[in-house]
């Protein structure tokens, strides 16, 4: 009896903590603007990313959703002509502050790209790449554990465990993308950014990756750019709609897909443009 109460109390506390953690703002964009040379790609975007939730960014091509995503781990720095304005915080720290080390930031905010881009190395080496660079493993045994766990979390372990030394480029498209997710997880990031991770995959591989995204939510905060309305509806808790460089509206995914405030969202979701 006593034990029962304690257990239910635990459950209650856990549930409440989960509920509260859902409300923690992991990353916050504050009037974010981006210019590529003379061309402005983002106009004052205010957007919050909540911890342990999947935030989907949707909108027609060229609306700035990928640009915003790339701001979150400063991948735009690698484009010479890009300049970012406004403020983006990670755990209330400005990530564009000169004191912030961009390498450290990218270790905390990982990224999975549109096209699977495994390195031309073995599967093992692909996953071990990040931990090696950041010195996360003290010895080979540690590294083995990290690689195995990452592959397990990316739901690739069963398929890859017997061929860890084969080149990652020899995997199928869907497996390659899960390898890239494993590679990102191996660095133990807090946030994972995904830029249309399923656009190069067939429906079965897509279903696997989507399932994976849902599982990853437990441990990571995820921001995903997608062109597929169904995908956004399936995997995300919150959805943000972009159009022509502006954030149109943002809210819980259920509401966005059933009762959006803005007519443009309504039109886009129902397929009237985009």
């Amino acid at each position: 009896m006593n034990i029962m109460t304690e257990k239910s109390l635990d459950d209650a506390v856990n549930a409440e903590m989960n509920a509260r953690s859902n409300e923690i703002i992991k990353m916050r964009g504050d009037k974010v603007t981006v210019h590529y040379g003379d061309k402005q790609a983002l106009f004052g975007v205010d957007l919050d990313v909540r911890q342990n939730q999947v935030t989907a960014l949707i909108g027609p091509s060229g609306c700035g959703k990928s640009t915003f995503l790339r701001c979150l781990n400063r991948m735009n720095d690698t484009i010479d002509s890009a300049s970012v304005g406004g403020k983006i915080t990670l755990d209330n720290e400005d990530i564009y502050d000169p004191k912030i080390d961009v390498v450290e930031l990218r270790a905390r905010v990982g990224m999975v790209f549109q096209k699977p881009n495994p390195f031309p190395k073995s599967i093992y080496e692909n996953v071990a790449y990040g931990p090696r660079i950041h010195g996360l493993a003290k010895n080979k045994a540690d590294l083995d554990v990290i690689v195995e766990k990452s592959l397990q979390k990316a739901a690739l372990w069963n398929e890859a465990k017997d061929r860890l030394n084969e080149p990652g480029t020899g995997l199928s498209g869907g497996q390659q993308q899960r390898l890239c997710i494993a590679r990102a997880i191996a660095v133990a990031p807090e946030v994972i950014l995904m830029d249309e991770p399923c656009s190069a995959l067939d429906p079965i591989a897509t279903a696997k990756v989507e399932e994976l995204i849902d599982e990853l939510r437990e441990n990571y905060t995820i921001v995903i750019v997608t062109h597929s309305m169904q995908q956004a509806a399936r995997v995300s808790q919150r959805t943000a709609m972009f159009h022509l460089g502006y954030l149109v509206e943002e809210g819980p995914t259920d509401k966005m897909f059933t009762n959006p405030d803005d007519k443009r969202t309504q039109d886009y979701i129902t397929g009237r443009f985009g």
Binding site: M75, V103, G110, F113, N117, Y129, I133
Partner: peptide, 15 residues
């Protein structure tokens, strides 16, 4: 060498 290779590595926090 494709840009995707560079992005992949930089995105993992490599210098």
């Amino acid at each position: 060498v494709p840009r995707a290779m560079r992005d992949g590595s930089l995105g993992l926090g490599a210098t």
